[in-house]
Amino acid sequence: MSGPVLSIKDLAVSFRSRQGAVNAVRGVDLEVMPGETLAIVGESGCGKSVTMRTVMGLLPAHADVRSGDIDFRGEKVLQQNTAQRNRWRGSRVGMIFQDPLSAMNPTMRIGDQIAEPLRVHRGLSRQAAQAKAVELLEKVGVRDAATRARQYPNAFSGGMLQRAMIAMALACEPELLIADEPTTALDVTVQVQVLSLMKALQQTSGMAIVLITHDLGIVASMADRVAVMYAGQVVEYGPVDQVFRDSLHPYTRALRNALPGMHTGASHLPSIAGQPPDLRRDIAGCAFAPRCQYAMTACHQQAPMRQVIADDQQHGVCCWLHDEACEAGRVYRGERT
């Protein structure tokens, strides 16, 4: 199958609040190809989770999808109701969350929780689903799986719970797995185990993964492509090595430069000077302009267009510096001194 598994076009989501609408997502375009791992990085609050929750239909009641189009293998997600979504949610798309302890039902046995999607989507009997759940637990590396399946989440460690979450999300062998900061709540050593587990499972099943993370080290080791988000928009995207080596957007560059050293291991998303913009306001130009050391008149007046840079159409950016007419851009890219 060719063509993207998931494509998101011009998605805009806002939250109603007492102080007016919060425009959490302001025109996101993304494509996820079969079998690939797409990483989404960006500062806290830039809209990574909201974007992916919109895909899964998990937005709270006070959220509005303002515009956009989401297509998962021909399913027009935004036009579907809950029942229609439930035909693919949990079976063809799985999702895992940041804090596995709160994401698991505390009063239900782990095995039952893993078996649930199997019973609902595959119509397996209770015994068959249970047996499959134990099998899945074994597959994600939980020892003594038969006993473990009968335990409640409070008897599990964080890492084991996340394994169980993965087993649950993968129970029906989905084509797409959305992982929202799957390792943020875990110890470093456990993080590595969980990530390599995901990688291994991906290799056997050929599913695509969308991996939301703050950790550029994880991006480098896990992802094929990366999308950098800022204030509700994708500002740069492309293959991981290109984006890190030839960072086009000043924000990406700032991130990369502020990193103490991508090879030393301390790779958490570095902080850069200034605050992200207030999403309740209309942002006229480039959202990064107040913090950008290259900001120009244009940046404050009009939002930059998306520019596809690389020859293979893979690497894109939203920044005025990459406008053909911008002289400063040439200096920025080192084409002129």
């Binding site: 998990l58 439930n86 949610r89 949990g90 649930e116 999607p117 609902v120």
Partner: peptide, 8 residues
């Protein structure tokens, strides 16, 4: 939320 994501 997890339960919804499971498509229940």
């Amino acid at each position: 939320r997890t339960a919804k994501a499971k498509g229940l």
